[in-house]
């Protein structure tokens, strides 16, 4: 069975125009319910922390609702893990600052984040501030796809 890597990742949605409507509806509703928002306040490109106001424990709630909606298990820190895998043996960060390779890796994993925001000097701890609702859409669609193919991902 094929192990998921950056090279064989399924196509990811870079904008709202690319989404599967049924999957998007589930993602949007999960965010709206977790954050006490109206569904139409949740956009694919909304920044989860900066614009929707999510706090750390909200991510727990969001993840729980997405797991239930898609019948998947979201690995904690999964986006960072994938980005680290994308840098191979090279360094992901130096003194907390992401390397060029790490930025390229994140750009491949998160096409919904404008490349200009993945700029030199970005710290690893700042990455969650870049997360869009679309980041979670792509993650859960990927995980649901892997599950359908019978791929077991590390927890």
């Amino acid at each position: 069975m094929e192990t998921p890597t950056l090279e064989n990742l399924p196509p990811r949605a870079a904008s709202a125009a690319d989404v599967d409507p049924a999957a998007w509806e589930k993602v949007r509703d999960a965010f709206a319910e977790a954050l006490g928002l109206e569904p139409d306040e949740v956009l694919f490109e909304s920044k989860v922390i900066g614009e929707l106001g999510a706090e750390s424990l909200d991510f727990l709630d969001i993840a729980f609702r997405l797991e239930r909606a898609f019948d998947i298990r979201i690995p904690r820190g999964g986006i960072e893990q994938s980005a680290r895998q994308g840098t191979g043996d090279e360094r992901y960060e130096v003194d907390g600052v992401l390397t060029e390779l790490a930025l390229d890796s994140l750009a491949a994993i998160m096409p919904e984040v404008p490349r200009a925001e993945l700029c030199p000097g970005l710290k690893a701890v700042q990455v969650p501030e870049l997360f869009r609702v679309g980041t979670f859409y792509n993650l859960v669609v990927f995980l649901a796809d892997q599950k359908a193919r019978g791929v077991v991902l590390p927890a």
Partner: peptide
């Protein structure tokens, strides 16, 4: 009161 969708599950 937080886990499981703030009581919903």
């Amino acid at each position: 009161a937080l886990v499981g969708g703030r009581g919903e599950e």
